[in-house]
Design a protein around this nucleic acid. Structure first.
Lengths: 214, 214
DNA sequence: TGACATAAATCAAACGATTGTTTTATAATT
DNA sequence: AATTATAAAACAATCGTTTGATTTATGTCA
């Protein structure tokens, strides 16, 4: 049976490794960091990765699992994705869309999911090692297709989803254009508001173009 | 003195390696591909990389040099970045902005620069191994700051630049949301038009918000 | 309570495989 | 014959992983 004090220490060092790994993976990519560097940063022995997760690939999965859990938790707390968009009025649908997107910004920039974690995830998605089909994204797609009265697989809907999500992700994905240029280490409350306002501006333009009242 | 026939063969195999390397770097990242894999794909011996570029890092620079050259060439042919935005009327400034952005789309999706190359570049920029300060981007920033009558280092200008560029890049950077979902291998003429139209829609919304006439 | 046994957590060292690079030898063109 | 392009093999360094030994906290029995 595991002891109490040592078990706490174990958990702490496990979290330290997760944190260091996420940071370094985000900075240099999965293949760009060795486990020695990770463990040095986390002040742990290299064997701990095998001990905890079996392998470096396992650590990778561990990080992903952590993200999925956090996101699920966030959605459960702040959103209700059970609502069928079709049962709402157009105005309600649009307000719901604003709410979901506001929450997406909050999730990414509000500290609920670390920037490192999100950067890592978007990177990995680009390498097609993983597929990003989070419940929130799936719901967004359905919601947008309902509002614009088109099929979810319609080219227009997919592009709209890409354009909208890119506006939310881009300050995170293109740090050379944003954080670095802004001479900041992280995003502020003010930055969050800029992103939220911008998404709304873009959405309103979209709606107006399609002749949908707001 | 170098012979003629063999020299041609040499150049061909050099180009084959560049092409394979670009493709694989874009797919798996710089550290995710070994030179053996690259040379196998390019049907060349591994020593050729040292022979041509000195090292794997040198090959990387070779690819970057290739990009810079292509972009410079494109800009020279299709754009005139010598025009001082301040000397133009507001309407001319805005039309110029549309032209530059249309050309950016054309450059990225029109085959002038391969998608692989651009994906690789955006990736590397994220890893902060390189800085993306192309003449076109620098000019865009100046143009936007002139139109919105703000300093180029203003937070608003930087965010606007990020939001605009992300709309152009995003279908390339988030393939899981676009190409794959569209069941396409590459982007069509129609896709280009969608992207161009979308950028214009967004810009018009931006201008209207700031009370600038169009 | 104090000595011992047990199991878990951590360490340093070494493993074979793979990395980028270099060397040496061969083939081909002028 | 001379030079250049290609091939195969070997190089040291680093990779992720495993091993065996050591430290540490807890439970048990005298």
């Amino acid at each position: 049976m595991p002891t109490k004090v040592r078990s706490d220490e174990k958990e702490k060092s496990k979290q330290r490794i997760l944190k260091s790994a996420t940071k370094l993976f985000a900075q240099k990519g999965f293949d760009g960091v060795g486990i020695r560097e990770i463990c040095k940063d986390a002040d742990a022995n290299i064997c701990m990765i095998s001990y905890f997760w079996g392998s470096k690939e396992g650590l990778y999965q561990g990080i992903l699992d952590d993200l999925i859990q956090r996101q699920t938790e966030y959605v459960k707390t702040f959103l209700n994705l059970e609502i069928e968009p079709e049962t709402l009025s157009k105005k309600e649908q649009i307000n719901l869309l604003y709410t979901v997107l506001d929450n997406a910004v909050e999730m990414l920039y509000g500290g609920f999911i670390s920037s490192d974690l999100m950067k890592f995830l978007l990177q990995e998605q680009q390498h097609q090692r993983i597929e990003l089909n989070s419940p929130m994204l799936v719901y967004l797609r359905k919601l947008i297709s309902t509002i614009f009265d088109k099929d979810v697989c319609d080219k227009d809907i997919i592009f709209k989803l890409v354009f909208i999500m890119s506006q939310i992700n881009s300050p995170l994905v293109l740090p050379a254009f944003s954080l670095k240029q802004l001479n900041q280490k992280e995003f502020s409350e003010q930055d969050k508001e800029i992103i939220k306002t911008n998404v709304k501006l873009y959405l309103q333009a979209l709606l107006k173009q399609e002749g949908i009242d707001v």
